[in-house]
Design a protein around this nucleic acid. Structure first.
Lengths: 292, 292
DNA sequence: AGCTCTTATGAATCATTGA
DNA sequence: GTCAATGATTCATAAGAGC
């Protein structure tokens, strides 16, 4: 299978026009946050953030397949001692564009930046807003299962009679359990909170996220051969991860230095000396990098 | 010092009129979420939630001191496959009332509800919205400091284990004192993410949040002798914790059964046979319970 | 007392069925 | 059609019972 990586240099709004409608399975991106990263992206004023983003999200709606998902990693900054509201306004505006705000995942940043302020603590979480076009969309929950808690080992050693049948909650809450269902299980489904450290080895790019972040969502919302888009590519983390996981990917970047850096890192198709047992390198893959 | 606990039976909107303006240091509450807890509270339709809450938050603004804080524990439910937006709309509307949306703390519920759905995972976090009247407000950050890093926690756990086994063989080894000394050295400020399990009580009444939740914010935003208000008292967790921590408190509850239960649990002022070294019982305190 | 094992339980959500 | 009621599904924790 050929794993394609298409890179576009230029403004996100114009470059998105070059992408086919309904061709993307997952959009995962971390757009420049309001007024931050001024030295790199110029910075968008918080008051203008929604107006700036809406044309982009409108086009993203078109390029996404009906079964696809859009994961937006964002967090409002503090302005004048208050949390700004542009993220909430953005959600409300995107719903008017037709997006469904399906879920809000939480990224708990285990090692967030140190710091001390008189009126707040360190901010150690970010939003991962999950938008979809339809109520039914592709989700491969089994791909991100996690080991079941330690309690299960002790719990399942001896099953009582109540454990073998369904035990309804006595309060009528509707919950109940059948412990015997869990007998041959060692994995369980995760929750909507992700515990990941922030990337330590910061590249040149100012706002990097750990590779595990796109990896988790790529696993969850795409299968091999699907297409992942990051309209604010930056240092290309999303694309490198997608490539490793044998998904096609598209990256758009406005800053030539980042664009060149990603292109150069992808260009030399190295001989596959990797451990064949590595998860996403089961077989030799042929990579094609299209640079436009 | 007298620690007062004032309980009011009745509708929150009307009962709040009986409370003096600018008399409360901290409002901590968890109002009924939209369309939930229908068996106890009537359940407010999501579309009407903001309109229902705004008169209450307007009055809360008046009773809060300028240096005070309002912590609102809330989470939007899923309606028709989408996260509802009433919480966001509430924040925007409360800002128009004059509230500053200073911060959003995150409660990570370690033992969230079970369940499996095709399009989402279990919801394991809730919002703790922090509103203030002024940009400068009281915050006692030193009161909630935590041991530095995870390595410290693990080491502490190991130490307390050896402490326990040694206690069996050699009583009064004085090992515990060493731990506390060691603890006091490497403390750091926490982040805006709280990791707590939900209360799992097999007793009479259900606390919707664990006592540690109000405890943390009472420590952080009040000092002894200050006043804490919970306009949706429920089983009285906030008030019991405030009382234990030697803060005055006010509770409003519309359901007579809950009101009576809290009243009865507070009424018998027991002789103080508690360990004098207990954290919030350093000296004998005289409690006065006013029931109106 | 201390340990292990058992039991209860919770701000849920979705698909299906019936009115 | 839309809306309401019912059934099915699922963890991790703490209290309590038993040894």
């Amino acid at each position: 299978m050929k794993t394609k990586t298409d890179l576009y240099l230029g403004d996100c709004t114009s470059e998105l026009e070059k992408i086919d409608d309904c061709s993307v399975d997952l959009i995962f991106t971390s757009p420049p946050y309001a007024d931050q990263r001024q030295n790199t992206y110029g910075g968008i004023h918080p008051d203008k953030y929604v107006a700036w983003f809406l044309p982009i999200s409108a086009r993203l709606f078109q390029v996404l397949k009906p079964t696809g998902s859009f994961i937006l990693n964002i967090k409002e900054r503090v302005i004048n001692g208050e949390r700004s509201t542009y993220v909430m306004e953005l959600i409300l505006a995107m719903k008017k564009q037709g997006w469904l705000w399906t879920e809000e995942y939480m990224w708990h940043k285990k090692n967030c930046y140190p710091g001390k302020w008189p009126n707040r603590f360190r901010d150690s979480w970010e939003r991962l807003l999950h938008f979809t076009k339809e109520k039914k969309f592709n989700m491969y929950q089994e791909e991100v299962m996690v080991p079941i808690g330690d309690w299960a080992k002790n719990r399942l050693k001896n099953l009582s009679d109540t454990d073998k049948t369904r035990d309804e909650s006595k309060v009528g809450s509707g919950f109940g359990k059948n412990i015997s269902n869990w007998l041959n299980r060692d994995m369980t489904y995760p929750t909507n909170v992700l515990h990941l450290a922030t990337e330590c080895n910061n590249k040149n790019h100012s706002a990097t996220f750990p590779a595990e972040l796109p990896e988790w969502f790529i696993k969850l919302f795409t299968k091999e051969g699907d297409t992942v888009l990051d309209p604010f590519m930056g240092s290309g983390t999303t694309n490198f991860v997608a490539n490793k996981m044998r998904r096609h990917s598209i990256g758009i970047e406005i800053i030539p230095e980042y664009y060149e850096m990603v292109k150069n890192k992808l260009q030399p198709v190295e001989p596959y000396l990797l451990d064949p047992k590595t998860k996403y390198e089961k077989a030799k893959s042929e990579r094609r990098i299209a640079v436009r």
